[in-house]
Design a protein around this nucleic acid. Sequence first.
RNA 1: GCGCCCGUAGCUCAGAUGGAUAGAGCAACGGACUUCUAAUCCGUAGGUCACAGGUUCGAAUCCUGUCGGGCGUGCCA
Length: 579
Amino acid sequence: MTLQIRNLKTDQNWKQMRSLPLRSPLQIRTELASAMQKALAEKFQEDIPDVEILPSRNLSFGDLACNSAMPLAGKLKRSPRDIAAVMADSVSSGFSQVEKVSIDGPGFLNITLSGEYLAEFTVAVASGGIGQFIPSQGTGKTALVEFVSSNPTGPLTVGHCRQAVLGDAVSRLLEAAGWTVQREYYFNDAGRQMDKLAESLAVRYMGLLGVSMDIPEGGYQGGYIKEWAGELRKDKGDLLKWPDEKDLFREYAGEKAFVLISDDLKLLGITFDRFFAESELIPDAVEEAIGLLRRKELVYEDSDDPRKIWLKLSEMDRPEDRVIMREDGTYTYRMPDIAYHLNKFRRGYDLVVDIFGSDHIDTCKDVEAVLGELLGKDDVSSRLRTILHQFVTLVRGGEKVKMSTRAGNYVTLREMISEVGSANVVRYIFLTRRAEAHMDFDLEAAVAENEDNPVFYVQYAFARIAGILRKTTDPESLVVRDPGRLISILTGERERDLMRLMETVPLRISAAASALEPHRIPDILAEIARAFHGFYQHHRVVDPDNDETTAARLTLCIAVRSTLSDLLKILGVHAPEKM
RNA sequence: GCGCCCGUAGCUCAGAUGGAUAGAGCAACGGACUUCUAAUCCGUAGGUCACAGGUUCGAAUCCUGUCGGGCGUGCCA
């Protein structure tokens, strides 16, 4: 059944009806703060520090709160309430966006936003989305986000999964804040682990030919290597020799691992702009970096063997010196890492984000210290941001599952997604936790929870709106353009609550982006979904007997849909039209 | 030993630069489907914010110490 809407008042003159041009949430807060600051400076003839306007913690007080009167009390030698009164006077008139200002408690200033402003905002979101109001901190700037970067020696595990989801969400969050983001995976194809992998492959290959070889110490034992061995035999025949054709084994294993990892990432819908191969850096870029360090006298030769080279980390506020080149001329992992980071910085990004597991703490601090010496500490500290996420403890039926790639005893990303049953659910669960918080992921609980998972709560709100919109023809054309008309109809508490919640979204996205904390997004989503479900339950949207109300509520629904959709997009979680 | 992270409701976790009565989801209990999707809503219950000091108008948040857990402290990555 489709409802026809008719006899709507024209609102083509809505632009002229506005008293003020629409301000963004940020502009309003800035203007209010500066008005208050100016009033204080004039009244007390003192330098007044920036006044901060924050969202109210408790909505019964209003929409915005300011507590600046209290810290100022000492300096101005007045009571906080007197100071707050001066601030209140400066904004209680002259701002069409402000409905009410009150002074409560010891000296809190509480501001209630006007319905007209909220309606204006809602109209704008319904027609142009929430994105236009996100402070564009990243416009014209570029960011490089490095994540996953797991050794190409096997399938991605649950730990990589957390990092993959986190890195992707951080990238999306930065993009939402206007940044141009490059996603990069550092492909560690030159180290000793690749030799181990090649040898492990050779063991399985020879095994197929009836030749027994010992698995090397620290070798890989995953079942996938047996599969590769079978394919290798099919591709290349039975005549390969170890170690004569070591390079072939190595290359074959590397290619297989790359495909494995790419396929795993596809399960999550994650793509990279570039896989940066460590081997590209060897030897030129690494030698150049060592040369730079040499010129700054930050390296020295080993007293026993001059071919071995040490890095003077102890002179860079780090605990101890480290070897960067072994006697045999090979590099330890720190050296290519340094060369890689040098390369990243030279590419000129405004922001370089590294995402690592917490086991990289020491290494990344060493790399950061070295970069500081080579490029200048200020440059490095202003451009480099490192996110160290804690590990996932995987639990199945109350029992901890040990994870170790090399022992072949681990749960893969693939298995996890398959067991939980949905990449969307996995993404959402991972992204609800802060990166630096430990995380217990109980597979059985995740599956059991599947039915009433928080992600479905949010998706369902979106799907409900889609359902409502299906009841009308061309709902977009019904969007109310006149804020005054909108607010005269949307008078319910739940309707206002939705509008004021949406009004906080742009600044919260921006704050989450600045902090590189995507875990704040699910909170916002849940709040909006909750407000919407409450609204839905209590207000009929499509009402054949009331076109005006229908149009106004549809406008609200369209704004909410757009907001939910943009927020879900940051998490990389699907917004379904139907459930 | 030393370095980094963590400790908030029965469980899993939020609490942006210190603010008013510490929140949500699951789990528990009681209600609501003749309706645009009940995968929902409304209500109840649940807390010494690990512990002890300190800083100040005010602390889950900052500082110190203690206890407990994770990771690191490899010429593995």
